[in-house]
Amino acid sequence: MKVLTHNMMACTKKQCMGKGFPLGVECTESITLEQEFNYEFVKNIIPKLDWKGIQLIGEKLAITIPPFTEESLLDQEFLKSLYHLLCNVKIITGSLICPNCQRVYPIEKGIPNMLLREDEIYQDVRE
């Protein structure tokens, strides 16, 4: 699973609507890919990113991204390192944890398993 996907994901159990992100990460194995830098993509994706999630996963993987400011858009180095983190770092084994309901989603062979159990689908909101 790429960091990009992690950044877009959220726990969508009923009681976590709007609160199920950023997902916590436990990473035991990760690899680095070599995709070419794509300026258009970074430009398009920046408004959609959740910077809290970037910081969180950056800490876990020991890759630091400087905080985002207005000037960052013009900073090639910043965009390149952001792209590298988003698209070239892939988590192979580990798990995702919902910050709200603490549900653990396992990641195996690079594929997160987001299937919900029967009792989790029709759960009513308990507050």
């Binding site: 959740d50 594929i111 987001m114 299937l115 689908i121």
Partner: peptide, 22 residues
């Protein structure tokens, strides 16, 4: 494949934040 994949039953909705995809 270049894209990223995940196991999910589409009948359970998608585990993404709102407004993610173009």
């Amino acid at each position: 494949v270049e894209g990223d994949v995940m196991v999910r039953d589409i009948g359970q909705g998608f585990p993404f934040r709102a407004g993610t995809f173009d």
